[in-house]
Amino acid sequence: MTVVPLKHHGRWVAAGVLLVTLVGLATSMITNSRFKWQIVGQYLTNESILSGLLTTIWLTVAAMAIGIVLGTVLALMRVSENPVLRTVASGYVFLFRGTPLLVQLIFWYNLSALYPTLTLGFPFGPSFGSVEANRIITVYVAALLGLGLNEGAYMSEIVRSGLAAVPTGQREAAQALGLSGFRVMTRIVLPQAMRVIVPPTGNQLIGMLKTTSLVSVIALEELLYSAQLIYTANFQTIPLLIVASVWYLVLTTVLSVGQSFLERHFGKSDRKATAAKVIAIDQTKISNAGI
């Protein structure tokens, strides 16, 4: 019988419409002098823009590090059998997920209005020292507190879902072998949970990169705020916004590539299991054919 391939007319029509649309957009962007591409190229490597870029990078890395560590601790508290730990973790997640990040950033930046002096000690007891809040809660500290503590609430749910995806039989088998609870979690549960945790964590990291633009409300000179300072002076708003967008796209692309490598690394066991299953099926077919 002659095999006739399916004709996908809809695909060709959709591809044609998409191609025409992309060509039209590209032509418009190139021929429209209001984009001012020469100014975009001029400011891509501007010293102020690069300084803001570095601030955005370290702020993203630091805030995500705080979020991952805090989220892991909160997730372990959520799955704990201790009701006090579960309640504290649930209350934390409820508070930080239930209020806007922008409000949290402004709150931390203005903490000195609520607590002018920060004191280390016991309630109604001796204190070990005090310091003015404005000396501790700088604009950088406020940004890290706002971004990191908020991210910890979301990461706790991601880690908790990864822990829940590991079959309970894995824990029971490890406990039957005499492993302690800490070794069961670090050697058995968490490595398997990483396959579920990594994809949404990569998504959160990319989201954090773009969320750092919110710290411009507290006058921290990250990428977007640096661009705003420049176009406030020279009134080249659109070119400077394009510059910031280009750098965001570059960083997002790099993070996406890194995420794909991590997913491939932690997905090795799945691929090996699938390959072994295919080999077993093939061997069964061969043995049946021999019979």
Results as ranks from 00 to 15, higher is better:
residue 263 E to W: 13
residue 175 Q to H: 09
residue 99 T to E: 08
residue 86 R to D: 11
residue 32 N to P: 06
residue 54 L to N: 08
residue 149 L to C: 12
residue 102 L to C: 06
residue 179 L to V: 12
residue 27 T to V: 14
residue 78 R to I: 06
residue 237 T to L: 08
residue 3 V to S: 14
residue 41 G to I: 03
residue 46 N to S: 12
residue 252 T to E: 07
residue 282 D to S: 13
residue 102 L to Q: 05
residue 11 R to S: 12
residue 96 F to H: 07
residue 242 I to R: 00
residue 184 V to E: 11
residue 4 V to K: 08
residue 86 R to N: 14
residue 236 Q to P: 07
residue 285 K to A: 09
residue 134 N to F: 12
residue 206 I to D: 07
residue 148 G to T: 07
residue 201 T to M: 10
residue 205 L to D: 00
residue 277 K to R: 15
residue 204 Q to C: 04
residue 41 G to V: 00
residue 174 A to F: 10
residue 119 T to A: 13
residue 261 F to K: 04
residue 186 T to M: 12
residue 287 S to G: 06
residue 30 I to Y: 13
residue 69 V to N: 05
residue 104 Q to W: 13
residue 266 F to A: 05
residue 37 W to R: 11
residue 95 L to F: 15
residue 166 V to Y: 14
residue 63 A to V: 10
residue 74 L to I: 09
residue 222 E to L: 05
residue 233 A to S: 13
residue 48 S to I: 14
residue 88 V to C: 13
residue 171 R to W: 12
residue 201 T to F: 14
residue 179 L to H: 10
residue 209 L to P: 01
residue 125 G to H: 09
residue 173 A to G: 05
residue 166 V to G: 10
residue 183 R to N: 13
residue 249 L to R: 08
residue 59 L to V: 04
residue 247 W to V: 04
residue 130 S to Q: 14
residue 193 A to R: 02
residue 177 L to K: 11
residue 263 E to I: 11
residue 15 A to N: 10
residue 119 T to C: 08
residue 10 G to W: 13
residue 245 S to H: 03
residue 168 T to N: 13
residue 238 I to W: 14
residue 39 I to M: 11
residue 132 E to C: 03
residue 136 I to L: 08
residue 226 S to D: 08
residue 9 H to N: 11
residue 100 P to C: 03
residue 144 L to T: 06
residue 56 T to G: 01
residue 81 E to V: 04
residue 167 P to L: 01
residue 149 L to R: 10
residue 30 I to M: 08
residue 140 Y to P: 03
residue 284 T to L: 12
residue 210 K to I: 02
residue 225 Y to S: 01
residue 93 V to P: 03
residue 213 S to L: 06
residue 255 L to N: 03
residue 22 L to M: 08
residue 99 T to D: 07
residue 13 V to G: 03
residue 210 K to S: 05
residue 231 Y to Q: 12
residue 124 F to I: 08
residue 284 T to I: 12
residue 173 A to E: 01
residue 165 A to V: 09
residue 242 I to S: 02
residue 39 I to K: 09
residue 261 F to Y: 15
residue 151 E to W: 10
residue 236 Q to W: 11
residue 251 L to P: 03
residue 174 A to C: 13
residue 253 T to E: 14
residue 201 T to E: 05
residue 273 A to W: 11
residue 212 T to L: 00
residue 6 L to W: 15
residue 69 V to Y: 08
residue 151 E to D: 12
residue 74 L to A: 05
residue 172 E to G: 07
residue 263 E to M: 10
residue 122 F to H: 11
residue 44 L to V: 03
residue 79 V to W: 04
residue 242 I to A: 06
residue 174 A to V: 13
residue 61 V to N: 02
residue 261 F to S: 03
residue 221 E to C: 06
residue 108 W to T: 02
residue 53 L to R: 07
residue 143 A to P: 03
residue 94 F to S: 12
residue 266 F to M: 05
residue 49 I to G: 00
residue 242 I to C: 02
